[in-house]
């Protein structure tokens, strides 16, 4: 048993962010009939798992975890996911894009990215299981369109986000009222920045996928990004594979998620690297955000995380 004291009655920024997020998790668990935590295996969703663990300890997390399997996920990410789910003893629901294509829920026309096909797959899974609240790992610092996102983000019966019709959010009084068929996206990490996330992972000493750390990988250049060699990533004419020392800054569909050359092999080294980084994490390595300046806003309206 450890006793900690605070002489000056001040919290560090990490403790204050943690307290706010825990408050949000408990509020949702108390007020919503069927919440679910959307788990991508990325660092943000792992921090969400940690906060949910803390919010209900020593009880188990009182809701299941939902992962959308693009079919193009990094095996390292799936391994980390399984470790977390097993340790916490939570129920894992996997919604597969592959299956959704087979079932005709979404249409793979060969041009649409897996990240985009996730939208239909996700909405279908939420509807089938009747979830009324879905926790997402979105942060307001990630992208301009997210700066106005609420902690409780209302989605209509089509799962859509209407930026002009969001509820005012005052103090820490969250309004969770929804109608039949609607659901709420919940963003407990709204006020965290990328650096906060890394500092927290370092402080909590929690497991994240190994691809976040520097490693040797066979990669090739495409559209100014370094992509991983993979059976899902057939080379186009002129593209050549070479081995580089890299790490990933975000985790997603491996056909679209680029890595950066990096020697950062520990969390303090990653923090140092980010502190001096001059390109936002999405701008650098996410092909799906680069198609247009308003790409994120469009995907959010459709029901993206």
């Amino acid at each position: 048993m450890t006793i900690t004291t605070h002489a000056d009655y001040r919290l560090s920024q990490l403790d204050e962010l943690e307290a706010e997020s825990i408050h949000i998790f408990r509020e949702v668990a108390a007020e919503f009939e069927k919440p679910v935590l959307m788990f991508s295996g990325g660092k943000d969703s792992i921090v969400m798992m940690r906060l949910a663990e803390k919010a209900f300890y020593p009880a188990k997390i009182p809701f299941p975890v939902l992962q959308v399997d693009t079919g193009y996920d990094f095996p390292e990410v799936l391994a980390t996911r399984d470790n977390w789910v097993n340790r916490l003893g939570v129920r894992l629901i996997v919604a597969s894009v592959e299956q959704a294509i087979k079932d005709g829920v979404v249409v793979d026309d060969g041009k649409t990215s897996r990240n985009r096909l996730q939208i239909g797959t996700l909405l279908n899974a939420l509807e089938t299981e009747g979830f009324t609240a879905a926790f997402g790992g979105g942060r307001r610092d990630e992208e301009k369109a997210r700066a106005k996102e609420r902690v409780y983000s209302h989605r209509d019966e089509f799962g859509q986000w209407d930026p002009k019709n969001q509820r005012p959010e005052l103090w820490s009084l969250y309004n969770g009222r929804i109608h039949e068929g609607e659901h709420m996206r919940i963003f407990p990490l709204s006020n965290w920045t990328e650096l906060d996330i890394w500092h927290y992972i370092g402080r909590e000493e929690i497991e994240i996928p190994s691809i976040y750390f520097s490693h040797q990988r066979r990669v090739f250049q495409r559209d100014g990004m370094l992509l991983s060699e993979s059976e899902f990533n057939p080379l186009r004419p002129g593209e050549t594979v070479e081995e580089r020392t890299v790490r990933f800054r975000t985790v997603g569909d491996l056909t679209l998620t680029g890595c950066v050359e990096s020697e950062a092999a520990t969390i303090p080294e990653i923090i140092d690297e980010i502190a001096i980084a001059r390109v936002t994490e999405r701008g650098a390595t996410r092909g799906d955000d680069r198609f247009s300046e308003a790409a994120m806003e469009d995907r959010k309206k459709e029901g993206y995380f």
Partner: peptide, 17 residues
């Protein structure tokens, strides 16, 4: 309780049990 630790004091804006 604050997760698996006991704390000697709780003050605003801490989330505790």
């Amino acid at each position: 309780d604050l997760f698996d630790k006991e704390v000697s004091e709780a003050f605003p804006p801490m989330s505790v049990t």
